[in-house]
């Protein structure tokens, strides 16, 4: 057995790799997670049905087509375009966000009833996204640099192995105290997230309820955000999800806010 050491290396190799995997820092985990969750594909389209459900079970439905285009690498600029179908009186309303990681988003809204496009101030990324329990940040992501991330432990959600990451805002401007995210070790999708308020009580809980492969990309197609203090929750289903459709940049402009091309919104 002259080559005993080769066998030794072969035996140790997986250990070394798993050791390397374990050595991922909190920040690295969250970066990978952000890329997998919010930046997959060059662009993305889905028909989104949101159910806003109060604690008595009364529902309000929002239905829209959501388009997203990445302007660069994961973590960089993005453009979002939303076309509303429901509630019925807001049909044809459109909403556009140009998202920049280090500064305030630009947002525009088209109000068909008075045929007006209005810029909307984006002073607070933590405010509710179209009246749901998701905030803008929950939908389009929070800058990784805004928080300190620590892998606290490893855990499981269902039968999936996860990193459990604690993220604590660096500044004091955030409206939450910290959050704990369960990030799937293979897909790097967040499977569960718990947000704690400044009084250190858990008040919001995210769960990825169904994951499907779309064009080979693992995608969270059903998700829920629940406000534990009010009992209000929002259930979101992504229908007709698709990636890499070749959206042009010009689509994300004021002109198309007024008259979005049929092929993109239907």
């Amino acid at each position: 057995m002259k080559h005993w050491w080769i066998w030794l290396i072969a035996a140790l190799l997986p250990l070394a790799f798993s050791g390397q995997a374990q050595a991922l820092t909190g920040e690295e985990v969250m970066k990978k997670s952000q890329a997998a969750f919010l930046y997959p594909g060059k662009d993305f389209k889905a028909r989104v049905v949101m159910k806003l459900i109060n604690k008595d079970g009364q529902e309000r439905v929002r239905e829209m087509t959501m388009l997203r285009k990445n302007m660069g690498e994961a973590g960089g600029d993005q453009k979002y375009f939303m076309y509303f179908f429901r509630p019925t009186d807001v049909k044809d309303m459109t909403f556009m966000i140009h998202k920049y990681p280090a500064r305030d988003d630009d947002r525009w809204m088209f109000i068909p009833a008075i045929s007006m496009v209005k810029r909307i101030a984006a002073q607070d990324k933590r405010s509710s996204f179209v009246g749901s329990d998701f905030t803008y940040e929950d939908v389009s992501g929070r800058d990784i640099e805004d928080d300190d991330h620590i892998v606290e432990r490893e855990g499981k959600v269902g039968d999936r192995d996860c990193y459990v990451v604690k993220s604590t805002p660096k500044g004091s401007d955030a409206d939450f105290g910290h959050k704990i995210t369960w990030v799937d070790k293979t897909s790097f999708l967040p499977l569960k997230e718990e947000q704690y308020d400044k009084k250190n009580t858990r008040y919001k809980q995210f769960s990825a309820d169904e994951i499907a492969e779309v064009k080979g990309i693992p995608t969270v197609v059903r998700r829920t955000m629940k406000n534990l203090q009010t009992g209000h929750r929002t259930e979101v289903a992504y229908l007709k999800t698709d990636y890499n459709l070749g959206m042009e940049d010009s689509l994300f402009s004021e002109r198309f806010l007024r008259q979005p091309p049929r092929k993109w919104v239907d």
Binding site: D89, V90, A113, I120, S128, F129, G131
Partner: peptide, 21 residues
């Protein structure tokens, strides 16, 4: 108050997009 129900609906929708629930 504006003249059509759609306008009212769209205003309130606009409001609810950013206001506290």
């Amino acid at each position: 108050v504006p003249d059509t129900q759609d306008t009212v609906g769209q205003y309130l929708f606009l409001f609810s997009m950013s206001a506290k629930p």
